[in-house]
């Protein structure tokens, strides 16, 4: 019988105030068990305060080939960064 448990991607919030970060994946029959397995597999060293699980097949991703059109256009918008602007020191912290 070929019946492999689905693959889940695991996201863990390491400390209060931080975002969840992808830490790895595991197998589980359903979301509830995926959360429990994530607790047992990925927080053995006190690494988390919150867990998200997403079945791997539900993750949509950008294609590697689209990297140019998707991400390069923002490279030239250097005026979006605070260091683009010189403000006289007398003005104080801004």
């Amino acid at each position: 019988m070929k019946n492999e448990w689905p693959l889940w991607e695991i996201f863990i919030r390491g400390q209060h105030g931080m975002s969840h970060r992808h830490v790895g994946s595991l197998h589980a029959p359903d979301a509830e068990m995926a959360i429990k397995n994530a607790r047992d597999v990925y927080t053995r060293r006190n690494e988390g305060v919150s867990i998200w699980v997403v079945e791997a097949k539900h993750i949509a991703a950008t294609a590697p080939g689209d990297k140019g059109p998707l991400f390069e256009p923002s490279e030239s918008k250097i005026y979006r960064h605070p260091t683009f602007f010189d403000i006289p020191e007398e003005v104080g912290h801004m």
Partner: peptide
């Protein structure tokens, strides 16, 4: 095998 199958079958029933 029976454990993996059993837990999977239950998850499917629940879904």
């Amino acid at each position: 095998q029976w454990v993996r199958d059993g837990l999977m079958a239950h998850a499917e029933k629940k879904a």
